[in-house]
């Protein structure tokens, strides 16, 4: 894991790429579900491995399109991304998007467990899809009673 890293990429480009990684159809896409915020939170917490590669990959995409990637048609965007599909930064971004989209709602990008309803996953926990609440005081330090 790296420390928190600055990012140089354009948010419009980042969001447009995510929109093609998990597009909306009858069910929400990455942006509807908040996958962009999920990834940016991880990024700002320094938890995204190889974030430099993603940063550079998005910058290269902008350089390739004179900063207009987000304004291209979906078809043009898909054609461009297909050129990059084998590149590490793109694989990592796909994986991060899937983490948000398919993880539990409490991770922030699967609101109301919509992605789980789409695929037929049943969480089956008494408290709801994300189970119990957070518990900041999850244990007390032990005491030696000798």
């Amino acid at each position: 894991m790296s420390d928190a890293k600055n990012r140089a990429f354009r948010l419009e480009t980042f969001r447009a790429v995510l929109d093609r990684i998990i597009p909306a159809d009858d069910y929400p896409g990455a942006l509807d579900n908040g996958v962009d915020s999920f990834i940016l939170s991880l990024w700002d917490a320094g938890l995204v491995a190889d974030c430099e590669a993603i940063d550079q990959g998005l910058l290269d995409l902008d350089a390739q399109t004179s900063g207009r990637f987000s304004m291209l048609s979906s078809e043009s965007q898909d054609l461009l991304l297909a050129e990059h599909k084998e590149e590490t930064w793109f694989s990592i971004l796909c994986e991060l998007a899937a983490e948000g989209f398919y993880a539990d709602p409490a991770n922030g990008a699967n609101p109301d467990a919509i992605s789980w309803r789409m695929i037929g996953y049943r969480p089956g926990l008494p408290e709801g899809p994300s189970g119990p609440c957070e518990n900041p005081q999850d244990a007390v330090r032990g005491r030696l009673r000798a």
């Binding site: 398919y102 993880a103 539990d104 409490a106 899809p129 189970g131 119990p132 609440c133 244990a139 032990g142």
Partner: peptide, 18 residues
């Protein structure tokens, strides 16, 4: 002696798939 905490389902935070 245990280096970890004592936890229960209810104390263990949300069902974190990650």
């Amino acid at each position: 002696i245990e280096r970890g905490k004592s936890r229960t389902y209810a104390e263990d935070g949300h069902r974190d798939h990650l």
